Simulated scan of single mutants.
Amino acid sequence: MAIYYRKLMDTFWSEYIWLPPNTTWADIDPDVDTAGVQHADYRHLFYPLPMALVMLLLRYLFEKFWFAPVALSLGIKNTRPKHAPENQVLEKAYTLSKRWKHKQIQGLAKQLDMSERQVERWLRLRKGQNKPSTLIKFCENSWRCLYYVFSFIYGITILWNKPWLWNINECWTGFPHQSVTEDVWWYYMISMSFYWSLCVSQFFDVKRKDFWQMFIHHIATIVLMCLSWVVNVFRVGTLVLLVHDCADIFLEAAKMAKYSGYQKVCDVIFAVFTVLWITTRLIIFPFWIIRNTWIEAPTLVPMFPAYYIFNSLLVLLLVLHCFWTYLILRIVHNSLNAGQMDGDIRSSSDDYSEDSKSQ
């Protein structure tokens, strides 16, 4: 069995796939001093796993001792919706399916000698039990906002004197023999630990309509970062991280303002977020980063199969950006009609009123 596993690993990590022509793994061995170049160490990719646990612990401490007290001082209450009355028949039907069609509601009403309205009200209350309080949502958004602020400021700080921030073609100068500086090392490790923590916390956080799209986004980001680290394409990776963190600050801040009752502040922040999102995710990301990796990189370095793997993952992120942009623009359209930002671009999927209208 060990022989087959080794053969599979050797095939997967073939130098032909992951490295430029005439380059071997020995050439970028982190334990070998290659003309003063300190290559990225693939063994360090295990560090973000325990760091993710630290990240989850920090989140718990911040939410309990900082975000929650601030939320309570702003008048945000930790109230939960009313519980639905106990009903074994309805509970069993709810367990089988959380979305009931009109015929099913009629059948349950006749079976229990209840009106359709009573059954619908029970379903709304039962779904409401699964929804978190405003306090919980505020704390969740506060943690993410704090992280994105830190990550963006740290990213700008360490990249300000890096040549590839001002000339993206510098990402390929000397590739794959590029040294990993200590600041870039921490930038990568902290970012990966955050995304690993999101993969865990997502199953316990507020459930959103784009749950699986967001999960795919986290996994694609982690895979992209891991592979770029192993193959020494981390310079492009730092630019991708920087572009992604910018707009997320304002998204989380807008939600915090909305939960706090500052609707006008929320509207202003959300407008800034929309402009930044479109600028960074649909203009800078595809026309600066992807354009470079697709068009300019082949003229600067010899191409190899991994080139297509990296670009495919970048395009996958772009597709997800387009999906979320559609949701954002829909919110903007509804907000202009309503006179204020109404809803959450990643709102809860357990919304009975929307479900019932569609049936």
Rank of each mutant, 00 (worst) to 15 (best):
F270I: 05
F270Q: 00
F270A: 03
A271E: 03
A271W: 04
V272T: 05
F273Q: 00
F273G: 00
F273E: 00
F273L: 06
T274V: 14
T274R: 02
T274P: 02
T274C: 07
T274W: 03
V275C: 12
L276H: 04
W277T: 01
W277C: 01
I278S: 08
I278Y: 05
I278C: 06
I278K: 04
T279A: 13
T280Q: 12
T280N: 12
T280E: 06
T280I: 06
R281P: 01
R281D: 03
R281G: 01
R281Y: 05
R281K: 09
L282G: 01
L282N: 06
L282M: 09
L282P: 00
L282I: 11
L282H: 10
I283W: 11
I283Y: 10
I284L: 14
I284N: 04
F285D: 02
F285V: 04
F285N: 01
F285G: 01
P286N: 10
P286A: 09
F287D: 10
F287K: 11
F287I: 07
F287A: 14
W288C: 14
W288F: 13
W288S: 08
I289C: 06
I289D: 00
I289T: 05
I290L: 13
I290W: 06
I290D: 01
I290G: 00
R291W: 15
R291A: 13
N292V: 05
N292R: 08
I295G: 08
I295L: 14
E296H: 07
E296L: 10
E296V: 06
E296P: 02
A297E: 02
A297F: 05
P298H: 15
T299Y: 12
T299N: 15
L300I: 12
L300N: 10
V301C: 05
V301D: 03
V301Q: 06
P302D: 09
M303C: 12
M303R: 13
M303L: 10
F304H: 10
F304S: 04
F304Q: 07
P305G: 04
P305Y: 07
A306S: 14
A306L: 11
A306T: 06
Y307I: 01
Y307R: 03
Y308K: 05
I309N: 00
I309K: 01
I309S: 02
F310G: 02
F310A: 03
F310Q: 00
F310I: 03
F310C: 03
N311F: 11
N311E: 11
S312A: 15
S312F: 15
S312R: 07
L313Q: 07
L313H: 07
L313R: 09
L314Y: 13
L314W: 14
V315G: 06
V315S: 09
L316N: 04
L316M: 09
L316F: 13
L316E: 07
L317D: 01
L318R: 07
L318F: 15
L318D: 07
L318Q: 12
L318M: 11
L318E: 12
V319N: 08
L320F: 11
H321L: 08
C322F: 13
C322L: 15
C322R: 09
F323R: 13
F323C: 11
W324P: 00
W324S: 01
W324Q: 03
W324C: 05
T325M: 14
Y326T: 08
Y326H: 13
Y326F: 14
Y326G: 08
Y326R: 12
L327R: 12
L327S: 07
I328H: 00
I328Y: 02
I328R: 00
L329F: 11
L329H: 05
L329A: 10
L329R: 05
